[in-house]
Design a protein around this nucleic acid. Sequence first.
DNA 1: AAATAATTATGTTATTTAACACCGAATATG
DNA 2: CATATTCGGTGTTAAATAACATAATTATTT
Lengths: 233, 233
Amino acid sequence: MADKEQISYKLADIIPNLFTILTEDQKKLVEQTHQIQHFKKNEIVYCEGDIPKSMMCLIKGKIKIFKDGIGGRSQIIRMLKPVEYFAYRAYFANEPYVTAATAFESTTICLIPMEVIDNLIRINNDLAYFFVKELSIDLGIADGRTVSLTQKHIRGRLAEAILFLLENYGMEEDNVTLNIYLSREDLASLSNMTTSNAIRTLSIFASEGIISVDGRRIKILDDERLRRISKHG
Amino acid sequence: MADKEQISYKLADIIPNLFTILTEDQKKLVEQTHQIQHFKKNEIVYCEGDIPKSMMCLIKGKIKIFKDGIGGRSQIIRMLKPVEYFAYRAYFANEPYVTAATAFESTTICLIPMEVIDNLIRINNDLAYFFVKELSIDLGIADGRTVSLTQKHIRGRLAEAILFLLENYGMEEDNVTLNIYLSREDLASLSNMTTSNAIRTLSIFASEGIISVDGRRIKILDDERLRRISKHG
DNA sequence: AAATAATTATGTTATTTAACACCGAATATG
DNA sequence: CATATTCGGTGTTAAATAACATAATTATTT
């Protein structure tokens, strides 16, 4: 196997929620077949149209999953943090990927061949249940997002996006700065608007004292108001 | 058990794809615990906020699953035909329903208690795999829909909705009339626009010879052009 | 059958948002 | 170091769509 990091890690630490589900034999199989890969900032993890070969688990870093839309306008579908599993849906649906994934920052991923996962699922009920639950949660989120993105106005959508980033990635030590730095363009494709509108609306929020902006650093000053904007106009 | 239709039916005929997965014992369990229910046109099958108690399978009729959005504007998330399974996602995600479901027309549903399904899933891998696949397909559709609904223009969205109805419900015997009759309002909430815009755009399509409209009856005259509109503006 | 309500249709206006144009600053590149 | 190139910012215009008003038609109820 090409790259195993000199076995300087334990899978039980790296992918705990998956690993605790498996029997000793099954763990051994995963240990033998998995792979660790690193990605630099902006590197592509997989492309739309690729045939899914591995399930992936984000170990370190941040990843965005997005779809290319109309006229080069892309839409962020999901943003991952450690330790989240991804890239398996298309395999189960028996499709090529309908999304693409890139690393937001320097990132480490654990890959497990989909045939291995497929075989394990068929003999390990808890593993199957794990995926059922995972997919059920994601589908609920997707349905909610559809309504938000289509019905909320720009301010509401941007507020929601900022709050999502907060829930997902949390704050830095200062307790007010979002622990993720997005370009205005990414912020736009997360909240379904043009880049100009993301920029404009962001500075309006800042001028209203709801947030403060320093480059890509966003400080949340009035969490309460942000929630109100996200809910109602 | 209240209503079993005098056992004048066989579950193997009614829910074949589920039933073929089960062992004899498991079939017996489902036979003992299931229920058949009828719903009249516009009757509510379940509500947002309800605790999911049964998995459902649509045996006869048509059902819409929708979310109430902002300002009374609802959004159709999914439309079912026989024999499709539904109402189980929220249970697996451990949530109350985030959608509601109503019957489009006189409808028959088979209900199986979720605890029964949950137990079966934990002992029958093929059943678990069935749900994994089902959910994976639906999640892919949901992600695609999000982009369509947010990025396509009105004409594209309506064209897509009409084509979806065609794929899903097919034609009547005449081979041109859609085999489902939606109110303009439902058509609007399927394609994310106001009712007026659905009405207007529909008559524009008719005036362009792409479709013809007779009340709620829609005939597709130029399938090719409809596809082009759905894809590009 | 009359009355009432819901649905469909059409025209007009207002709002929202995208598109475009331009600039300066920061960052990468040869 | 000079120069592209990307990124963030702002103002202006144009396009898409919602909101509103009103009326005709069709269903539903009394």
